[in-house]
Design a binder for these strands. Structure first.
Lengths: 189, 189
DNA sequence: GCAAATTAATGATTTATTCAAG
DNA sequence: CTTGAATAAATCATTAATTTGC
């Protein structure tokens, strides 16, 4: 009973969250494997964290920011629209706004820009999945620390390089989103 | 000149393809990390292959089989429908069939069943991503064998356990798709 | 026959959607 | 209601089939 079951899913500490948001604001969007490793290593100072958490966090955050923007645009448009006279109003509230037969082209463009292509063009080359498969013996270690359904050991906690060493900070925290995400320049070990 | 640039992307050999299709027919759909490792090890006998190739192959194959089925259903339905008298025909050919205002409920169900939920419910628990992140020093080995944009070393070729050892076959080639995909019963090393 | 041009398949990524813990 | 986690759908990009004109 004294044992508080360590929640199955990652709960970012305030510090971790702050750092992540900071990075996001700096332009980091889809960090690649080694960037993720670095970030994970950094953030593991503040509490339990694995690579996959970082990976998912950026993925979700990106998607949800886009979604928020979309909704704002949508609301804005509908306010605008419903305030216009001389138009019969449609029955549905087009939540998939793009489908709305009257969605103005201008906004349509803005929409598209902020959604689909948002990240697509951001980097010159592609960014890879942040997964690296561990080839070796499946370490049975910490059987309940690892979510039972997953074997993304990929994203195993960085026991190896955890804050014992200053860890170079540069490049991971670019000042602007033009930061070269080309990677493989960042060697970790 | 003699050097034929080794194509950037994986081109499955006939044997590999055969084996993969065999597994698929046996019910394998979304193998998890260790299953992928095993499969990869097996198939590497027949030529270059990495875990990510296996992962993608199953993902794509599953999706495209579903798609084929969907199209068949769609065609079937439209044939049926257009053969019916006493209905005015619609202008568009609803390729997104689900939207068709006259798509029969029965078929709609079949459709949904074969698509969305196809795999979702297949296993009791979730299946994880087949990625395991390699924590160690980024092995710069074979710089041109790895596609430049990706760092899914995850899915690096299984140099370690390649056919030198018989490799247990069981469980990976289940006789029917009821095969427990729960994993973690299959230890590789 | 044989390349250049087109088209079809399919490997690889990204985005959207969904599930479910808290 | 928010958000971590996972899956499926859509899309991009390259390779293989194939068609075509010579």
């Amino acid at each position: 009973m004294p044992q508080v079951a360590p929640s199955a899913r990652w709960c970012p500490t305030p510090e971790q969250l702050m750092k992540l948001e900071e990075m996001y604001k700096s332009g980091v969007r889809s960090p690649n494997a080694s960037q993720i490793q670095q970030i994970t290593a950094h953030l593991s100072c503040y509490g339990r964290i694995e690579g996959k958490n970082v990976f998912y966090w950026f993925q979700n955050h990106k998607a949800r920011e886009r979604q928020k923007l979309r909704r704002r645009l949508c609301r804005h448009y509908h306010l605008l629209y419903s305030s216009l006279p001389h138009h019969h109003h449609h029955q549905h509230f087009y939540c998939g706004l793009q489908e709305s037969p009257v969605f103005p082209l201008a906004l349509r463009h803005a929409y598209a820009t902020t959604t689909t292509t948002f990240l697509r063009q951001e980097a010159n080359g592609r960014l890879g999945m942040p997964c690296e498969m561990e080839t070796g013996s499946s370490e049975e270690a910490s059987p309940d620390a690892t979510p039972k359904h997953i074997s993304m050991a990929a994203m195993a906690p960085p026991n190896y390089y955890c804050c014992k060493r200053p860890l170079k900070t540069l490049d991971l925290f670019p000042t602007k989103n033009t930061a070269s995400i080309n990677d493989e320049k960042l060697i970790i070990n």
